[in-house]
């Protein structure tokens, strides 16, 4: 008999069997799909010299240790975990904040001269300057010379805004009220760098300005946000004139706590008429 004929017979028998026992041949997990949780990334050293010590080592650091190997290479899950964390960071840099999300906070959008994502990454200077259209828009729509100006920007992580703004923003407004501070017209800057504060400061002349901006994503968190604050921001301001609360995300500085703290810092800036290294906190 030829090989092809055997194959045909086997195929026929299999089909008959499948018709006879339809349910038994369909494994359940295929229907449900693969359910993969944090725990499924875990690997372990098969026969450690000191079993009790493994947990001590692993819990002492967030570094990826005790992961084991195949030959000189990592195990599949360890490698996929690293690639997954990097994927989250990549998507954070390349992502955009959805307009309707910003509408929830009544934030309108203006842009810097960043043009597109590639230029944004290559030319930090362009993200520090608003477009002419943006200048006109905020001149028309915003209160001039407010006590506190709030600005939100995607920066290097769009998902930092989407993850944290819903907690930071209301807490910030509450803390302004608590400190009897009045707030101008907040807005969103697309393609912003930290120093876009200076340009905005020139136009609106606020007493203090707070910029909530997405940080450069790390592998631990791709959605970390910073709050940069400055007293009378304007061109020529140096880094050390600004105050910052960084690492704002659910596993870092809790967003609600950060929002509340910002009000306190702004209050001190107004009292001392200073910010940055000159400010006593």
């Amino acid at each position: 008999m030829k090989e092809k004929q055997i194959e045909l017979i086997v195929q026929k028998v299999m089909e008959q069997l499948q018709a006879k026992f339809p349910t038994e041949n369909r494994a359940d997990p295929i229907d449900k799909g693969l359910i993969f949780t944090e725990k499924d990334w875990e690997t372990s050293i098969p026969k450690p010299a000191f079993q009790e010590g493994v947990a001590d080592l692993i819990t002492s650091t967030p570094a990826r240790i005790g992961v084991w190997r195949t030959g000189t290479r990592p195990l599949t899950k360890t490698m996929l975990k690293l690639q997954f964390d990097h994927a989250a960071a990549i998507d954070a840099v390349g992502g955009e904040v959805l307009e309707n999300y910003l509408e929830e906070f009544a934030l309108f959008t203006v842009e810097t001269c960043y043009e597109n994502k590639e230029v944004y990454l290559k030319r930090p200077d362009k993200g520090r300057v608003l477009t002419d259209a943006a200048v006109q828009t905020i001149t028309e729509r915003c209160h001039n010379r407010p006590q506190v100006q709030i600005v939100v920007s995607d920066g290097l992580s769009a998902c930092a805004v989407e993850t944290n703004l819903k907690d930071v923003y209301p807490a910030l407004l509450d803390s302004l009220q608590l400190n009897n501070l009045t707030c101008g017209t907040p807005f969103f800057v697309k393609g912003g760098r930290v120093a876009c504060m200076d340009h905005i400061g020139e136009i609106l002349e606020p007493e203090v300005l707070v910029l909530l901006i997405g940080e450069r994503p790390g592998l631990v968190s791709a959605s970390s946000m910073s709050a940069y604050m400055c007293y009378r921001p304007r061109k020529g301001i140096v880094e050390s004139d600004r105050n910052v609360i960084s690492n704002i995300h659910p596993l870092g500085t809790p967003p609600v706590e950060a929002g509340a703290h910002i009000g306190t810092v702004l209050q001190k800036m107004l009292e001392q008429k200073a910010s940055g290294v000159k400010l006593e906190l």
Binding site: T61, P62, A63, I65, L82
Partner: peptide
Amino acid sequence: VPMADDCMLN
């Protein structure tokens, strides 16, 4: 660096 990911320098 452990699995190439420096958890301090990011």
